[in-house]
Nucleic acid binder design. Structure first.
Lengths: 123, 123
DNA sequence: TCAACAATTAAATAATTGTTTAATCGAAAA
DNA sequence: TTTTCGATTAAACAATTATTTAATTGTTGA
């Protein structure tokens, strides 16, 4: 990581400072893990949905047009990453977005990215 | 998508409104594509680096400790997604983050998520 | 033109992962 | 208890993808 060990010296004077502030391995892992969750279109739709309402698995499956095992699989991943939480009521499991800073940041990012990637639909 | 066609009626009165505002397929695809790019730890590190400086491939490879073909692969993906741009100077290709709203939103998200997932390091 | 260097591409491999169907688990009602 | 329904798990499969080594392209200087 030492500036002097880089193959090429382009005369930049701030490389050392940048390296010093570079995120550590654990921080990279945490951030990329969160991003990875929403890097899948199916999970992104489910997460978006659960940001706006609480629903049971069968309803989620119907809304996103997937089988319930497939939905269950994605719900497990989202839950493992701390993005959603669940609650049982009788036979049904209700899922909703977690009330955490992590989930709020990601929700906010989704809304912003939606406007950036599809500006015409947000005019 | 009609409320009445959901398997279970939980008596929610706002489902129809939610469905109406649900992101379309293209918007989901665009957002998840952007997220997917940074869902890989290697690409996340490279993107973070290029948010802070412009570098040639060999230097990037040295900094993130990867082979240049591997870095080249990720650079191509990041570039295809519009997150970074490149410039040739002599034998070297210099890469840097794109000057776009998309790249800015993602950079901002990374910084925020870093603070959320590793709060102690940002105290 | 030829040699040296930077970057990309190709081929191959390994690993991960999303989805499906079938089987199982858990809770409630008959 | 048995049945029914919702949800999860298991097994299998298909598809994608990250990485490595080797070969190739492109540019500069001898």
């Amino acid at each position: 990581m030492d500036n002097k060990k880089l193959p090429h010296d382009h005369g930049y004077h701030n490389e050392e400072e940048i390296m010093k502030n570079m995120p550590g391995e654990d921080e990279i892992a945490g951030v990329s893990e969160a991003m990875k969750q929403l890097g899948d279109p199916s999970r992104l739709r489910i997460f978006w949905l659960l940001c706006h309402c609480e629903e049971c698995v069968l309803n989620i499956a119907a809304i996103v047009n997937m089988t319930s095992p497939a939905v269950s699989h994605h719900l497990r991943l989202l839950k493992s990453s701390g993005l959603i939480v669940s609650r049982r009521e009788g036979k049904e499991m209700y899922y909703r977005t977690a009330d955490t800073e992590l989930a709020r940041v990601l929700h906010h990012t989704i809304e912003k990215l939606g406007r950036v990637t599809c500006p015409e639909q947000h005019a």
